[in-house]
Each structure stands twice: as structure tokens, then as C-alpha cells.
Amino acid sequence: MRIGYFLSCEEYTPAQLVEQAVAAERAGFEALWISDHFHPWNDEQGQSPFVWSVIGAISQATSLPVTTAVTCPTVRVHPAVIAQAAATASVMLDGRFVLGVGTGEALNEHVLGDAWPSYDVRMEMLEEAVALIRRLWEGDFVTSRGRHYEVSNARIYTRPESPPPIYVSGFGPKAVDDLTRFADGFMSTNPDAEMVSRFKDATGGKPAQAGCKVAWADTREEGVDIAYRLWPNAALPGELSQVLPSVRHFEQASTLVTRDAIAESSVAGPDLDEHLAQLHEYRDAGFDEVYVANMGPHYREMIEAYGRDLLPTLRSDR
């Protein structure tokens, strides 16, 4: 299983994200995930830089592969624009780029005043968007009018030698079944072996990536405090993360999340056995790659500890 580092645009400045990418490569992480948001989940997180600018900077600072986790190419940004952005990112990364996409969240996608569709419509839009992106990557002029998207005499001139793979995020059996029709790979944040197996069985074993979080600190108590302050939204149930439209709504809903709930669900503090156990959980679920994000200010210590003590252990397990 390949171990990568997950860059959280919701929490860190562009300079910090590039710093983390460089440190992750130095420590021995093998690839990068990077989130694509217009808003953070709450004001305490406090950041949300434009992901394509950050990817450009990372491409000049490291040699690691990069996957967006995830881009929504359907409402806030037209798929033709994403096709151009992703093609440029792949060129700058010498082909080491995966476009990770998903049906998105109202939090980020409603900002231009568009209505937020139901899941079935969003998945239909996503499938059409992915097909259009792939067609544009072929390099010809494209004029097309689909159910949701129209382009006229559109051509992507700056393209990599080979088109990037497109991985798709999904949660639950219906979403996984839907994305098997058009995904080059599967993305999730849950160590759900059933969903991984469901995807791989339907696609002949296509790859699966996962992301998870830790809160590095000198003590577990401090780590839990950090996770509770910055990421209480991670414990919100069901479809709330897809349908709540604003940072304020997430902050209101997160008041229902207790510190004990965060303590129970978070890997926090410096105990490497706990960190290793989380990674093994994703490995045992069948993921081919897992990307670890740090919550809070101690990302340097987390990256250094993983590089010194944890990544060598995982490599020896292969």
C-alpha cells in the first residue's frame, strides 16, 4: 500500500501547503492528495486557497504525484474549465497527476446562486462532465450540447502526453455502483472493505485511494482538543456534509458534536502504534493508497515522525 500525505486547503495557507508537500517528500511520503474547496468547513479552519494555483507551486517544489481530493466539475466550475486546469496541472507535474472528482457539497458549489440538485441529478451531471472532460483532452475542437453542459469550438491546447486518470469519490453502495460506469479509480475516506470490494469486483480491480486524518500533539489530550476545535464537522452524520450550504450552518450543526465523540473517532497524539493501526485498517479494507492529513499546528512534527519511525515500518510490511 502506498502512503501519501493529504494537504488540507481548508486549514493552511498556500505557503504552508507547499512547505508540507516539500517536507512530505523529504520524509518519504510517496504522493499527495489536496482538497479543492471554495470555503472551509468552519471559520476556525480559516483558509481556502484556489487549489490550481497551489498545485502549480507544488509542481515546481516537489516531484511527488498529486491527486485532487476532490474537485467538483459540475456547478461552481464548468467542466471545460476543469479540463483545461487539470491538463495544465498534468503538464506541470510531468504526467504525475490524477483528477479526483465527486458530486460535491452545497457548501462550495452554491456560491454562484445555482440551485443544489438532488444526488441523482448531481451524479448524472458528474458523469456527463467527466465524459466532456475526456473528450476535450483528445485535442480536437469540441462543439457539444448535452443535457447539462454546452461547449462551442472548445479546444485544449496545453495537454500532457497521456490524459490523466479520473478517480471518483463515492460513499455507500448506490454511489459506488454509479461511479463504476466511468471511474478510473475509487476514492473514499472510510475504511469500508465492502465498498472497496464492490468497486473492484465491478471494474476488474481498478485502484482505490483513501484519505484519513490525525491530530499530532505532545499528548493525546492536546490532540483531541485540536481535532475538536478544528474538525468537529468530521463527526456529522449522514448527508449533512453534502447539503448544508454555509460555514455558519456547519458551525451550528457541529455544536451537537461532543468532545467525547471526537476523542472516540480521532487518532490524536504521538502514539505511533495508534497511527499505524489506522493505516492498517485502510490496508486491510483493500485500499491501494492511503493519504494522511494532519489537523492543527504540529504538522512538521507529524511529518518528521512518520518519516523517521512509521513509513519505514510500513515499507517493511510490503
Rank of each mutant, 00 (worst) to 15 (best):
Y5K: 00
S8V: 15
E11R: 13
Y12T: 02
P14Q: 05
P14Y: 01
E19D: 15
E25P: 02
E25D: 05
R26S: 14
S35F: 01
P49E: 11
F50R: 08
V51S: 07
V51Y: 00
S53M: 13
V54N: 05
I55G: 05
I58P: 08
Q60T: 07
V70L: 11
H78F: 11
V81H: 02
I82R: 07
A83M: 10
A87E: 07
A89H: 06
M92T: 01
L93S: 08
L93A: 10
G102L: 11
G104R: 12
E105D: 14
N108A: 09
H110W: 03
V111D: 02
W116C: 08
S118D: 09
Y119P: 07
E127W: 01
L136M: 12
G139T: 04
V142S: 04
R145C: 04
Y149H: 09
P160S: 14
E161V: 12
S162L: 12
Y167I: 00
Y167Q: 06
Y167N: 05
Y167W: 15
F171N: 09
G172D: 13
G172F: 06
K174V: 06
D178C: 00
D178Q: 13
M187H: 04
G204C: 10
A208N: 03
G211P: 01
W216L: 07
T219G: 03
R220G: 06
R220D: 07
R220S: 07
E221I: 02
E222N: 04
E222I: 14
D225L: 08
Y228I: 14
R229L: 13
W231Y: 11
N233C: 05
L236M: 10
P237R: 09
V243D: 05
S246R: 10
Q252N: 08
S254H: 03
V257C: 08
A261C: 00
E264K: 09
E264D: 15
S265Y: 00
L272G: 03
D273Q: 13
H275D: 02
E281S: 14
R283L: 08
R283E: 10
A285D: 09
V290F: 08
Y291F: 15
Y299V: 13
R300M: 08
G307Q: 06
L310M: 09
T313A: 08
T313K: 05
T313I: 13
L314N: 07
L314R: 04
